[in-house]
Computed example of a mutant assay.
Amino acid sequence: MKVLDLYERASRVPVLGKGAFSLAVALRAPYFLTIAPSLVELEPNRAVVRIRKWWGVHNHLGTVHAIAVANGLEMAMGVLAEATIPTHLRWIPKGMELEYLALSDSTLLATADTDPADWERPGEVRVAVRATREDGTVVVQGTIRLHTSEKKRAETVSASPVAG
Results as ranks from 00 to 15, higher is better:
Ala131Asp: 04
Arg121Ser: 15
Glu97Gln: 13
Arg50Cys: 03
Glu43Ala: 15
Val69Gln: 14
Asp105Ser: 07
Glu97Gly: 08
Val25Ala: 08
Pro122Val: 12
Met96Asn: 03
Leu89Asp: 12
Asn45Trp: 06
Thr137Leu: 06
Trp91Cys: 05
Ile67Cys: 08
His147Asn: 12
Gly123Gln: 09
Lys94Gln: 14
Ala47Thr: 12
His58Phe: 15
Ala83Val: 05
Thr148Glu: 03
Leu101Cys: 03
Val138Met: 09
Leu89Met: 15
Thr114Tyr: 02
Ala128Phe: 00
Ala36His: 15
Arg126Thr: 08
Ala117Leu: 11
Arg28Cys: 09
Val69Met: 10
Ala29Asn: 04
Val129Phe: 02
Val57Phe: 05
Thr87Ala: 13
Ile144Phe: 06
Trp55Lys: 12
Val127His: 01
Gly78Asn: 03
Ala81Ser: 13
Ser38Thr: 05
Arg28Trp: 07
Ala112Pro: 05
Thr132Asn: 00
Leu89Trp: 13
Gly78Phe: 03
Glu74Met: 04
Thr84Met: 11
Val49Phe: 03
Thr107Met: 07
Val139Gly: 07
Ile35Ser: 11
Trp119Ser: 05
Ser38Trp: 02
His58Val: 01
Asn45Arg: 04
Lys53Phe: 05
Glu124Cys: 02
Val57Tyr: 07
Arg145Ile: 08
Arg145Ala: 12
Val57Cys: 07
His88Glu: 15
Thr111Gly: 00
Asp135Val: 09
Asp135Lys: 07
Leu27Asn: 04
Ala76Ile: 00
Leu101Ser: 02
Ala76Phe: 03
Ala110Asp: 06
Arg121Cys: 10
Gly142Thr: 11
Glu82Thr: 05
Leu73Gly: 09
Asn45Leu: 04
Ser38Glu: 03
Val48Gln: 07
Val129Tyr: 00
Val139His: 11
Ser106His: 08
